[in-house]
Nucleic acid binder design. Structure first.
Length: 581
RNA sequence: GCGCCCGUAGCUCAGCUGGAUAGAGCAAUGGCCUUCUAAGCCAUGGGUCGCAGGUUCGAAUCCUGCCGGGCGCGCCA
């Protein structure tokens, strides 16, 4: 259950009964300090003022109207009009006790199931994925997993860059390559896509015959020429084969069926532009088709003219994005669309959606949200690059993580079998990279630092994984199965209570992540949870001989639920756990 | 020029949409292992929340103006 939402609803009702307007938010929050209780309501003060009432008196009245006698030990009015709630340990025990055999630890499936399209990753064809794609891929996948866990229907949309004039030169280059080497590129694969792209560009810039052929291929490709389309298709396939392999290494749930590239919308563009014209949104202007937007300004301060069709008849990426938005609403039946796209595209997306809404493609109740994120920086606070100044490829990043994780694991001279070491290195290396990214607020730039992400101290993947193995180790020591526990839950020690209340917050945390698309909030909670468990672990023995059998069973329940919460939480982030480390 | 984002401890980051004495982790110092993994726990020090105004019971958070950093504003994507 969502404890916070439960209290919010209770206090709101009391607030209204005390004379506040309907729906006045109670503003229930987790208390900042233990002395202010477990939860606090902050909503009385502002509403009291607007009603001309004394806030403390009104808060007092609210507490009298609240029927929470089973739930709270003590309710107090404090300061200028805060209401603090001290939850009954017995009630907490009861609540958490309901979930001792619940796989979902009390996290309910949503009442109103939504179809949510998550736009993520979006690599370019004939280019290797690099760090700029990491955040979109990893954060988008984590939010997608969280939404799925809550019961929504999620459609991952991998909006790959598979269209554009660059394909002329790529097809020409591929043709030459196949002639020179007498092989099908598909058979060898484009071992080095970056190199391939670079060569194509170089020839295009230096060889007039080549560039002429390239331009010819662009026209043919757009005209639907069979051979050109076949060549183009090859490039897409080769690229995506490589990318899908990377997704697998990254433990990201993006498959072939999620690919919905730019080219997919091409057939929809002519009718789209015709429709915009019919609706008088788009007009002919110097041979091009333009949508004028008063709401946006160009460099000269004039209303922005967004071109949706070029004078030569070609379309632009704004046109594609309008069509894409329309498709997501009309064909995918999205209730909500989340774009995990670089912050720099903000203006562009705003314009595309603005036009789409004006044209009636996006109904008011469907929300389109640009979930921006900042750049990855190196330790010099400059964009993260290789020593030579090039972009860091994802494959290289994962390789380095692997070797660093291997070194780290071996430096600890544990007695792990080869297989366990392999599992650990794998989980640790991708986990460290992903967690480092996920644990930071996506909106700002963040500094990429190998040492801190692979540290066992602080809010890191290794610490979280260690917490999990520590719990598991208790079950091994006790020789019992975490899934077959008997006995009841009973909370007596403060560390037990602290752990319990943290466990009970899982629903509210996941709800927040789903609402805001902010996995770092989940990371923060997991870090709290791991911390609460560590404190519990230090002061509350479980398997030791002097421990009373009933206490032991109760504590085993706490351990089992902690392990489950950690695993579920980390799964929502796309992270693996291991049993040993 | 117009627009968007960012500025919080020496470093890396939180701060739940206006709440109580701004919190964590690194790094520094000191303590805790014959008992469930010390890759851990506990304690101490560390801040003019870029600056200046404003809004109000109350501002890191909202409004205005500066300063500093990043990024957009193509018949490219």
């Amino acid at each position: 259950m969502n404890l916070l939402a439960f209290l919010e609803q209770k206090v709101t009702a009391a607030l209204v009964a005390a004379g506040a307007p309907d729906g006045t938010p109670a503003l229930v929050r987790v208390s900042g300090h233990a002395r202010h209780g477990d939860y606090q309501a902050n909503g009385v003060m502002s509403v009291a003022r607007s009603l001309g009432k004394n806030p403390r008196e009104m808060a007092q009245r609210v507490t009298e109207l609240l029927d929470l006698s089973d739930v709270v030990e003590k309710t107090e009015v404090a300061g200028p009009g805060f209401i603090n709630f001290f939850l009954k340990t017995q009630w907490l025990t009861q609540q958490l006790g309901q979930y001792i055999h619940d796989d979902r630890l009390g996290v309910p499936l949503v009442d109103k199931k939504q179809t949510v399209v998550v736009d993520l990753s979006s690599p370019n064809v004939a280019k290797e994925m690099h760090v700029a794609h990491l955040r979109s891929t990893v954060i988008g996948d984590a939010v997608a997993r969280t939404l799925e866990f809550l019961g929504h229907k999620v459609i991952r949309a991998n909006h790959i860059g598979d269209w554009g004039t660059q394909f002329g030169m790529l097809i020409a280059r591929m043709e030459d390559l196949e002639a020179e080497q007498q092989v099908d590129v598909m058979d060898v694969g484009l071992a080095n896509l970056e190199e391939f792209y670079r060569q194509a560009k170089q020839e295009y810039d230096s060889d007039p015959a080549f560039s002429e052929r390239a331009r010819d291929y662009v026209v043919k490709l757009q005209g639907g020429d069979d051979w050109c389309r076949e060549q183009w298709q090859k490039l897409v396939q080769v690229t995506m084969k490589q990318n899908l392999h990377l997704y697998e290494r990254l433990n990201v749930k993006i498959t072939d069926k999620d690919t919905m590239g730019e080219s997919m919308y091409n057939p929809m563009l002519p009718s789209l532009v015709a429709d915009l014209k019919r609706k008088k949104l788009a007009v002919e202007d110097q041979g091009a088709v333009v949508v004028h937007l008063d709401e946006f300004r160009n460099k000269d301060g004039d209303p922005m003219g967004v071109i949706v069709q070029k004078r030569d008849g070609g379309f632009l990426y704004t046109t594609t994005d309008i069509a894409c938005a329309r498709y997501r609403v009309e064909s995918l039946e999205a209730d909500r669309v989340l774009y995990y796209v670089d912050a720099r595209q903000s203006d562009h997306l705003k314009q595309a959606w603005f036009i789409a809404r004006k044209a009636g493609y996006i109904p008011a109740q469907v929300s389109f949200e640009h979930h921006t994120f900042g750049m990855m920086l190196g330790q010099d606070n400059r964009p993260f690059r290789t020593r030579a100044g090039g972009v860091v490829k994802l494959a290289a990043l994962l390789d380095e993580a692997r070797s660093r994780a291997t070194e780290l694991v071996r430096s600890r001279d544990g007695d792990l079998s080869e297989q366990r070491e392999e599992e650990l290195v794998r989980a640790l290396s991708t986990g460290a990279i992903k967690y480092a990214d996920l644990s930071k607020n996506r909106t700002s730039d963040y500094v990429f630092d190998w040492d801190s992400m692979l540290s066992f101290e602080g809010n890191t993947a290794p610490y979280m994984m260690y917490a999990f193995t520590r719990v598991q180790s208790i079950f091994r020591k006790a020789g019992v199965d975490a899934n077959g526990l008997s006995g009841a839950l009973n909370l007596t020690e403060p560390e037990e209570r602290g752990l319990a209340i943290c466990l009970l917050r899982m629903t509210e945390v996941l709800d927040t992540v789903a609402r805001d698309g902010t996995p770092h909030f989940l990371c923060g909670w997991l870090f709290d949870l791991a911390g609460c468990f560590m404190k519990f672990y230090e002061s509350c023995p479980v398997t030791q001989s002097q421990v009373d059998p009933e206490v032991r069973q109760s504590r085993l329940h706490l351990c089992a639920m902690t392990a489950r919460a950690l695993r579920l939480g980390l799964e929502c982030l796309g992270m693996d756990v291991v049993e040993y480390m």
